[in-house]
Every structure is written in C-alpha cells, then in structure tokens.
Design a protein around this nucleic acid. Sequence first.
DNA 1: AAGCGCATACCGACCAGTCGGTCTCGGCGG
DNA 2: CCGCCGAGACCGACTGGTCGGTATGCGCTT
Lengths: 223, 223
Amino acid sequence: MTQRLAGDASAYASIPDRLLAVATRLFAEKGYESTSVQEIVAAAGVTKGAMYHYFGAKDDLLYEIYHRLLGLQTRRLREFAGGTGPVEERLRAAAVDVLSTSFRYLDEFTVFFRSMHMLPKERRRAVRAERRRYHEQFRALVEEGQREGVFRADVPADLSVHYFFGAVHQVSTWYRQDGPLDAQQISEYYVDLFLNGLRARPEGPAAAAPGRPAGDDGGAASA
Amino acid sequence: MTQRLAGDASAYASIPDRLLAVATRLFAEKGYESTSVQEIVAAAGVTKGAMYHYFGAKDDLLYEIYHRLLGLQTRRLREFAGGTGPVEERLRAAAVDVLSTSFRYLDEFTVFFRSMHMLPKERRRAVRAERRRYHEQFRALVEEGQREGVFRADVPADLSVHYFFGAVHQVSTWYRQDGPLDAQQISEYYVDLFLNGLRARPEGPAAAAPGRPAGDDGGAASA
DNA sequence: AAGCGCATACCGACCAGTCGGTCTCGGCGG
DNA sequence: CCGCCGAGACCGACTGGTCGGTATGCGCTT
C-alpha cells in the first residue's frame, strides 16, 4: 500500500530511483520536452554521466515511469477483481482504488497523458498493450455484472470502461490539493456516479432517450 | 454548423488559416515541441517570414487554436442551454453536442489536453478562465435539474460536470475512426451513461454504497 | 590489476526568432 | 492618365544558444 513507484528523491535513495522521482516531478511541472537532461541530473544531485550510465536515453525515463505505474495498477486491480463478494462490491472497491491511486500518483498520471506521444513508436506500442490488458481486466468485471443482470447490458462494457477511465484520468487536469473536496470524497462521488449510471434500471434502461442506437454487442472500440 | 475553426489547409485559404490548420494537424500528430516552425511553414506552403508576419511567436498558434475552439464551444453551448424545453432534454442536447464537437475537432482537443502547459503563464490563465466560464455554463444546467428534483442532488454538480467532461475529453486518446462504433453511437451511449448516473433514483440515491461522505454542498472543486 | 561506477569536457544537430531586403499595389500629385 | 511613392506583405539566410548524447578517463572496490 505504501510502495513507491520510484522511491523518493532523498539523497539516500538509489540513483536511478532519485532520477525517476525527480524526472516525474519535473515532467509534470514543465513538460517532458521543456525539461532538459541537465536539469534532471542537477535536481537529482548527480551528473549526466551517471544518468546515461543507468538509462540509455531520456525517453527511457519516461518509459520507466509508465511501466512502473502500469505495473502497480495492474497488480492492484488483480487483487480487487479476484475477490469473492458480489460483483458490484468488487467493482466498487476496484474503482475506488483506481481513483485513490490516481490521486496518490497525480504527477505520474499527468505525465502519462501529456507525454505518451513522445515515446518512440515501439515503446509506445508496448505501453498501449499493457494498458489494454489493464482495461480488459477492468472490463471483465463490468461484463460479469452484466451477465448477472446487475448492470445494464444495453451499453457496451467497453464503452462504460472508457467512460469511467476517461473521467478518472482527467482529474489530474483540474484537481487541486486546496480545493473544497479531498481526494477521498471525490473518489466516492465518482464511483457513485459511475455505478449509478451502470446500474440496471427497473423500468428498463434509460427513460426519455429519443433515438438511441440499437446495437448492444459488447464489441471493443479499440483500446 | 459547418463553420470551420481555422479554415481548411487548401491553397485558397488565407495564410493565417492555412497555418492554423496545418499546425493543428502537426501538433496533434507529433506534439507541439517536436514540431518545428520550419515544418509548419513548409506544410502550409509559406515561408517563415510570412508566419512571423501574422503570428508573434510559435505559441501564438497554440493559443489561437485554443481560443477558437473555446469560442465555438461556448457559442454552441449557449444555444443549447438557452432553450425552453425540460432541463433533461436541454442537458441531453447540450451533452450530445459537446461530444459531437469533440469528435469533429479531435485534433484540436488532442492538442488542447496535451500541450496546454506549453503556453506562457499569462496565456494559460486566459484559456483557463475561458474554460471555467464554459464549465459553469454547463454546470448551471445540472443545478437547474437538481433544483427541480430531476437529478440527484447528493453529488455536487461541479463534480458531475468534471466527471462527464473528463470522460468526453479523453475520447481523443482512444477513439479510432475505424473502430466498431461510430462517433454518433458513442456520443449517445456516453450521454446515456451520464444522465443515468445523474438521475434521481426512486428509492433514494445509490443503493449498496458503504460509507459515502456526508457533505453535499455544491461547492466548486476548482476549475 | 581488472573492471565497475561515475565525472568532465565536448560535439554535432537543430531550432525559434530576426533582420535587411524585395515585391506589389493603392493613392495622389501633376 | 501617368508615374512616383510609401506601406504593408512577404522572403529566406543567418545567429545565438540549447540540447541530447558520447568519448575518455579516473578512482575505488574486489
């Protein structure tokens, strides 16, 4: 629960960890491209030589940030999804966890969605694949609930997941520490909105909806 | 309805429009920072001198893209919100329009959420202010519905709007033209999920929700 | 003495922005 | 109606500086 992604930036952490921690902060603050390698190594208290000893290139830092973040998320999700309670409970727990992780690693998420495109093609593909696996893991929960009739099945599970993840991943763009609501509250409100939107309604799905599409296959809309 | 944001890039459009259209495409493709002014002017078929004749700096292009996009959105939203039908209908129409606008101007949105931070501080503040006004306009619709009892009031309207906009603004990261669902379908599903999540439930808000926060003030969580 | 872990000096590429200059065209005096 | 002039539109070579990455060497451990 208290595992860090890149260790802290203190002088006692290992050099790679210090570099990753500092890079994450700087990339989130000023953007990947406007952060020079020189700045990173200066802030980490090491030299350029040291950095290129541990990382082959600047974008390796970026990749490592993504890789660690996705690893953490996938591991956590697996724990929550693998439980034994009712689907809705498990989905709720997983969703809350996704949100609190997003809040705990705000910088990582900021960098993720802002600088993904700076990765070389091959790396980007690897990250996308990891992300898709994560997405599918989460989607499986929704589909389970659909099969059980707990969740509405007239909206493709894939879309519901994109929808929720979209909302979650944008929090890094507007959330401020000193806002009126803390992370915990926001998380629970968000999960509430998500589950409420997903829940099957007694009188049939979604009243007062003029002209909605007919298809209700669970087809993926890419990932 | 068919108004363009920066004209097209054809040789007959004005030079500033051509530059904006080309810049939008390139920024979306390769990112702001890795697109050189040289590339932009080459793709637009003009020279550097011409560009700096019309734009004071590279980031003026960025700002102009945002400014035009936000102007368009605000104008459209005003039309939809100002109607006379029931709130839910107006909100639905507005929400669908937000989505179809997002799909039509995918590149603009991509650039927006990826490169906002490259703007100089002053400009960034201006854009954020414009965006907040837009957000509040949309929020007013939700609040109206809450007062009328159509929408649940136990989730701050501000959060609901952040939630929906978050989901919407992320579509540019996963939507592909050749996916199984077209933009129209996705829009309606999304709006459905949003309104269903927002709708007041007969038996009281959100069943099976262990330990939800008490506060239900409509306070803004920044913007 | 071998080799790992890092330091330092340096390179070539590139890039935003500039600046002196040219071209076109509308207006105006004769 | 002609010819001149000024101004805005545009050109493109150039510059000062930065940046990612590398080559080489040194000290310390084993």
